[in-house]
Nucleic acid binder design. Sequence first.
DNA 1: ATGCCATACGTTGTATGA
Length: 307
Amino acid sequence: MRIATWNVNSLKARLEKVEWWLERAAPDILLLQETKLSDADAPIMAFAMAGYDIVHHGEGRWNGVAIAVRSGTSVTAAQANFGDGPVRDTSAGARGGGSEDDFDPFREARLLAATVTLPGAVPIRVASVYAPNGRVVGSPFYHGKLAWYDRLERWLAAEISTGQPFLVGGDFNIAPSDEDVWDPRAVHGGTHVSAPERAAFARLLDLGLIDAYGSRRTERGRFTWWDYRAGNFHKNFGMRIDHLLATPDVAARTAWAEIDREARKGKPIPSDHAPLIVDLDAPGREIDAGWGGAGERIAARRGYRPD
DNA sequence: ATGCCATACGTTGTATGA
C-alpha cells in the first residue's frame, strides 16, 4: 500500500501536475493540502478519469485539504476539522483572511480524516492536515498556530486511543530539528524552527506516533519544501516540514520512504512542496518496495533517476 | 530582516505563504 502527502499550492493551478504524478507514483492514498478550493470546485471528474475518488474539505481561497484514494476503495466516517475547539464567530476568520483580531485557525479548512479500506486490506484511519504558518514568532498568528497544535495533539490522542491503524500526514509547517533545514543560521529566529513549535511537534511523537520518513532516513539535506525564489530549489535550500506520522503497528509495516523531488521540477510550474511517500506492506498482499520495485519501473518509463 | 516567486481575487493592487 502506497500512501503519500503533498501540499500542492492550489489544486486548480496544479491539476495537470497532480494528474501526471498520480500516474507516475500510483499511490493508493494521497493526502492533499492547500487545495485552495471550495468543495463545489473539487475536481471530482478529473480525479475519476485518473482512477481516483477524492474527498475534499475546503473554504475557497485559502487552505483546503483532501484525501484521494484509488477508485473502488471504501472511504467511511469522514471528519472535517476537529469538530469543536475555541471557535469565535468571525466570518473573516472563516474565510481564512481578515485582520489579526479576526484570525481563528480553527475555522479554517485544515484537517480531513477518513477510514480507508483498500480491497483486501485492513482498514486504516488517515488524516490530512495543514498546520497554520505562524508568520512571525510572537505574533497572534504564531500563538494561533501553537493553539491549533494543542488541539491537534488532543485530537490525535483520541484517534490513537481507539487502537485502529492510524496515519496522519500533511504540511505541519515545522522543521523538527536543525538537521531538517538547509542552514539553521539562515532561519534562526523565524517560524517553523522555534523551540515552542518544535516542542509541539515533539509532543505528537510523545503520543506514540512515529515519523515514518525521519525515523528511517537519516541522511542530511532531504527536504520537502523550497522557496520559489532565488533558485533555492536548485541550491537545495529547503526545509523538511511535511511529515507522515504513524502508529507503531503501521510504522512497522513501512517498507520504503521517499521524497519525490522530481515533482518539484519542470513544467507546468510545480508546487513549492514535493510529495512525501511511504510504502506499507499489507497482510496477504505482496508489494514492491520503493523505486527499486514498482515505483522504479514507473519512473524508468519516464527517464527518472532518483537524486 | 528581507516576499526576489507564486497563488487567488480582482483589476493596474492586496493578502497570503514559510
